[in-house]
Every structure is written in structure tokens, then in C-alpha cells.
Amino acid sequence: MLNEGRIVMKCIVGLGNPGRKYKKTRHNIGFMVIDELLKRNAWGPLKKDKFQGKHVIEHLHGDKVVLLQPQTYMNLSGQSVKPLIDFYEIDPGDVLVIYDDLDLPTGRIRLRQKGGHGGHNGIRSLIDHLGTKEFKRLRIGVGRPTNAVPVVDYVLGTFPKSEEEAVSESIENAVHACERWLEKPFLEVMNEFNS
């Protein structure tokens, strides 16, 4: 897509924590979506880079897209995203961030054009570093703890077997939503996946 003579590049960021011990945790569902997106499109692999993350540039429908997994730990995600989008001259409005959401039931996804951080430290870091709330979000429900488990332990815990099917479905829907966004206006994608 051309904009004032230059190619517009989009960026899809999956939030999570680096390291094997966090791999399958609720907080890493953003990483899981990026992994599935790479697998389904035979893209990648992600490479470690100077942006404190792992990223790869790919093409879909003639558009360039950067896929990024920050390696800074969740609450410092902005330290990875900001230098990457500055380097590639990507407008924050062309960034889609995928992350876990306690306020959505497990298995549900929700897209938003912009908004506050809602208590999510990864999103808080992005708003702080980008200096704007004007980036797109894809929230994936992980539900809230139903017992006395502290929220920090809950999001750093893995999904129980009983939720595996719902989690797989939400990852698949999120991948579809990302792919659609690379060919359609975001509002259309929101209407399709939020209904």
C-alpha cells in the first residue's frame, strides 16, 4: 500500500515473556499467536535483533508486515517496540498489539482501535514509550481466577486441560483476524470478529 509515495509497513506485536518457563503461560498468548501466524503462512523464523526482540519481515497481499516478539519481559515491552517502529518508519496507527485480557472469558477475542492500558503492564509500557494510545489491539481472553490465586500467579500459570480447546480456538481466530487486517480496513475486521 502506498502512502504519499512510500510503502506503508504494518507491524504485528505479540506480547509475552521470554524464556522456556513462560512459554505456555496465559501471559504469553500474544507470543503463541505470532508463532501460529508464522507456522500457518510458512513465514520466519524470527531472528534476535538490536531492538531487544525477535522479528521478521514478511509479505502478504503485496504489503510488508513486521512480526515482533519483544524479549524485554512484559512490563518493558515498549523498549522493544518503539525503536523497531522508528527504524522502519511505521506509524503507531499501523501497529497491532496482541495480548492477554483478564476481563474476557477464555476463548474470546476482542479488537479495539485504541484505548487505555486497562491495568495491563505491557500496554502501559507501550503507551509510555510510543507517547500515544493510538495503536490497534487484539485482546485474547484468559478469564479471571475463580479462587484466591493472586493475579500475578494466575497470568504466569498455564491453561488447564479443560480450557485447551477454547484457547486453541481463540488463537486460531486471532490469526485469522491478523491475516484479514493485512488485506482489509481494521474497522471491517473489528465488525467481523467482535460480533
Rank of each mutant, 00 (worst) to 15 (best):
N191P: 02
V8D: 09
E183Y: 12
N194P: 01
S168K: 15
A177G: 12
V152D: 12
K50L: 11
G62Y: 03
L130D: 10
H117C: 15
T146M: 04
P105K: 14
K50M: 09
G115T: 03
E134H: 07
I85C: 05
G107F: 00
G115N: 05
T72E: 08
L68D: 01
G116S: 13
N147M: 02
L2R: 11
N75Q: 11
L182V: 03
L68G: 05
E4P: 00
M190Q: 14
A148Y: 00
D128Q: 13
N3D: 06
E134K: 09
G19K: 12
G118M: 05
E163D: 08
L104K: 04
V95P: 03
G131T: 08
L111G: 04
E169F: 07
K64P: 10
P185G: 08
R144Y: 09
Q79R: 11
I127R: 03
F31W: 14
T72I: 09
E89L: 03
L84S: 12
L76G: 10
G19C: 10
V81A: 04
M74F: 10
V175Q: 05
E192N: 14
G53N: 08
G16K: 14
V189Q: 06
I57D: 05
S170C: 07
Q69W: 08
Q52V: 06
I127H: 02
E172Q: 15
I98Y: 01
Y22Q: 06
R112E: 08
K133E: 14
F193M: 00
I29L: 13
I127A: 07
I7Y: 09
V33F: 00
K48W: 01
M190H: 14
V8P: 02
P105Y: 05
S195K: 15
L38D: 05
S170V: 01
G157K: 13
V149I: 11
L68Q: 10
D63Y: 04
F51Y: 15
Q79A: 08
T106Q: 01
M74S: 04
D49N: 15
L84K: 09
K47S: 14
F193D: 04
K23I: 09
W43H: 05
G116R: 07
D86A: 00
R110N: 10
K161C: 02
M1V: 12
L15I: 02
G14I: 06
L130V: 06
L102M: 15
G141D: 01
N194H: 01
V167Y: 12
H176T: 14
L187M: 14
F135Q: 03
V175Y: 07
N121R: 13
G16C: 14
L126K: 06
V33T: 03
G44C: 00
E164V: 04
G143A: 08
P145I: 07
Y154F: 15
